[in-house]
Nucleic acid binder design. Structure first.
Length: 373
RNA sequence: GCGGAGUUGGUGAAGUGGUUAACACGGUAGAUUGUGGCUCUAUUAUGCGUGGGUUCGACUCCCACACUUCGCC
């Protein structure tokens, strides 16, 4: 059965929204943060641990699973849920981001995109139809249209023709989408430009998707201002009763600013990647656990934090694990960081309910970034 | 006791009579936004065993001493 979204409340002071996702008898509140599990695993975490830290929807990646183990293997296993033993909702990215990260502009054609296989160098060709067919087989709950994800700072003319092509690709993908239990989202592009975002949103909405994503953000060191414009200029033209998803956004302040502009879903690799690199989120900013000043700090990463890592382990111990390159260190920090972002979303939802989101943002910004930003 | 070889940073080490002592690892710090766990960036010996000497100038040449190591008695 398809996942259901119900908009429950819209903030009176901002465009922030509270909603509920229903899925096989489970309910999840939005706005929500979704951890990324590219290879059908949120790196270092077992599904039970995802539940414990408060995860709902998680991501998996079409491109990576297409190359390895192949969508047919996943289908033989009974779909992604069976294959990876996760009974919560799963969203698959379409491979569109890999157009940005792995292909060169000259490899992008109207028909599709040529890739160099990052595993063995083979030449690959991915099209909108192929991406949707793979996602149908993976049997995720939410599939993404295959889009081009150009750098946010690309010039206007390039973005214009790219946006138009992404709309055509969305239509092609929708035409071949078959899985009745799977939502399909369209993706809004257009960089920071109001007219391109408007065009992209309106044309994509005409195709009538189950939800809408905002892509092409936070991918080329564009200014925060431009990123927030991209949010605003996209949600301005999206229907209120459908989910809105900002792709790849994970900096806490960007999440808050996104919620303020009417976005419901966020995903990011940062909690797990930062963890693997030894960094931890705290309410007073990110800390580098490797720093020698933590070598004899026999306290949790954050006092009062109720995550598994903070309830049982000290900074000194986790630092030792990270410095010694032990995987348990990355696992404990991943648990902590994902838990932190879910707690952030909880606070965001409380503040929407209390109509104090703007005050919360200002206070959070001061605590988290201090004088830095 | 005699003879040979050798002493350069936390480690392994390059180096030349002439400005800032190569490189690697390690350390320290930073980056990381629809994931390669990769990686990238900066920084890390005011000093070349100790003391003299030669020289305009010595880590580099000479002498003594200390220490390490190999061989012989």
């Amino acid at each position: 059965m398809k996942l259901q979204f119900k908009l429950e409340e819209t903030d009176t002071l901002t465009k922030a929204r509270l909603g509920k996702i229903s899925y096989h008898g489970q309910e999840y509140a939005t706005p929500m943060f979704m951890p990324v599990g590219t290879n059908a695993t949120v790196k270092t975490l077992a599904p039970e641990e995802l539940k414990e830290v408060g995860s709902g929807i998680i991501l998996a990646n079409t491109y990576h699973l297409w190359l390895r183990p192949g969508e047919d293997i996943v289908a033989q296993a009974g779909g992604l849920h069976q294959f990876m033993n996760y009974d919560g909702p799963i969203l698959t990215d379409s491979g569109g981001f890999q157009v940005f990260s792995l292909a060169k502009p000259k490899d992008i054609t109207e028909e599709g995109v040529y890739f160099k296989n990052h595993l063995n160098g083979d030449k690959l060709f991915l099209t909108p139809e192929k991406s949707i067919a793979i996602q149908n087989k993976l049997d995720s709950d939410i599939a993404m249209s295959f889009d081009e994800c150009p750098p946010a700072t690309a010039d206007y003319e390039y973005l214009k023709q790219s946006v138009e092509r992404t709309v055509r690709w969305a239509a092609r993908g929708k035409k071949v989408h078959q899985n009745p239990n799977q939502m399909l989202f369209g993706i809004v592009q257009g960089g920071p430009h109001q007219d391109l975002r408007e065009y992209s949103a309106k044309e994509t909405v005409k195709l009538d998707f189950d939800g809408y994503s905002i892509g092409g953000v936070a991918n080329d060191h564009e200014s925060k201002e431009d990123m927030y414009k991209a949010f605003q200029y996209s949600t301005d033209y999206l229907p209120t009763d459908k989910l809105r998803y900002a792709m790849g956004i994970g900096d806490p302040i960007d999440i808050i600013e996104g919620v303020i502009r009417g976005i419901d879903l966020f995903d990011c690799v940062t909690p797990t990647r930062l963890a693997r690199h030894g960094h931890a989120h705290t309410w007073h900013g990110n800390i580098n656990v490797r720093n020698s000043k933590y070598k004899d700090v026999f306290e949790p990463i954050e006092k009062g934090c109720q995550c598994y890592a903070c309830r049982h382990y000290t900074l000194a111990y986790i630092r030792h694990l990270i410095v010694a390159n032990e995987t348990f260190g990355a696992r404990l920090l991943s648990i902590h960081n994902i838990y932190f972002l879910h707690q952030l979303m909880l606070k965001i939802r409380e503040n929407i309910k209390n109509h104090t989101l703007l005050e919360f943002r200002d206070q959070f910004k001061q605590d988290f970034y201090g004088a830095k930003k």
